[in-house]
C-alpha cells in the first residue's frame, strides 16, 4: 500500500518537530508500520530520502528495535511476557498455550517478549500493545477472538489507535 499523501503530510509535521530531521526515524518507521502492517522496503527507502540518509542506515536502525517488523506478521501481535515475574506466574505455560492455539494462523503472531512493566498482573500479555493480565490461555484466547471478530477494536501492530487499519 505504501505511504499515502496524508501520511506524507504527517511525516513532514513529525520531522519538523525535531531540531534535526533524523530524530524522526522511529516515529516514521512506526508510521510506516501502521500503514502497511510491517516496515516495507519501499517505506525504508522513502524514509531515507526524507531524512537525508541512506536506506542502509534506515535498515540498520530498524533492525535494532523489536517492535519494528520487517515482514508481514498478521493483524494481531500477541506479546506474552515470560520474564521473571511472569516466569514464576505461569507465563511460559500461557505462551505455550497460545503458541499451539495459533500455530499456522497467519493473522495472529504470538511472540515471547521481555518484561512489559505489568508484573503486578503476571502473567501479562499485550494484544497489539493493549494490556491484559493476569490471564490464562482460555481467557487470552477469548480476548484475542473478540479482537478477531471485531467485537473489540484493536490498535495497530505498533500500538497506535490513530491510524488503525
Amino acid at each position: 500500500m505504501g505511504f499515502t499523501d496524508e501520511d506524507r503530510v504527517r511525516a513532514r509535521a513529525i520531522i519538523d518537530r525535531y531540531p534535526h530531521a533524523k530524530s524522526a526515524m522511529l516515529p516514521l518507521l512506526l508510521l510506516a508500520q501502521d500503514r502497511d502492517g510491517w516496515v516495507t522496503p519501499e517505506a525504508m527507502e522513502e524514509i531515507a530520502v526524507w531524512l537525508g540518509t541512506t536506506p542502509a542506515l534506515v535498515l540498520g536502525t530498524c533492525s535494532f528495535y523489536t517492535m519494528l517488523k520487517r515482514e508481514p506478521v498478521g493483524d494481531l501481535v500477541v506479546s506474552v511476557c515470560t520474564n521473571i515475574a511472569c516466569l514464576v506466574n505461569r507465563g511460559p505455560e500461557l505462551l505455550d498455550g497460545l503458541r499451539s492455539r495459533y500455530e499456522g494462523d497467519t493473522a495472529i503472531m504470538v511472540e515471547e517478549v521481555e518484561c512489559i512493566a505489568a508484573c503486578d498482573r503476571a502473567p501479562a500479555i499485550q494484544i497489539n500493545y493493549e494490556y491484559y493480565g493476569p490471564v490464562d490461555t482460555t481467557a487470552a484466547v477469548d480476548i484475542i477472538e473478540q479482537y478477531r471478530s471485531g467485537a473489540l477494536q484493536a490498535r495497530t501492530i505498533s500500538g497506535s489507535s490513530r491510524g488503525a487499519k
Binding site: P41, T54, P55, A56, L59, G60, S63, F64
Partner: peptide
Amino acid sequence: DPLIDFGGRGSSTEVITYPGA
C-alpha cells in the same frame, strides 16, 4: 558514503548493506 551499517543487535549484530544498494 554510509552504505554499510550494523544490523540486528547483541550477539547477532552484523554488518549489512541495504538489499540492492
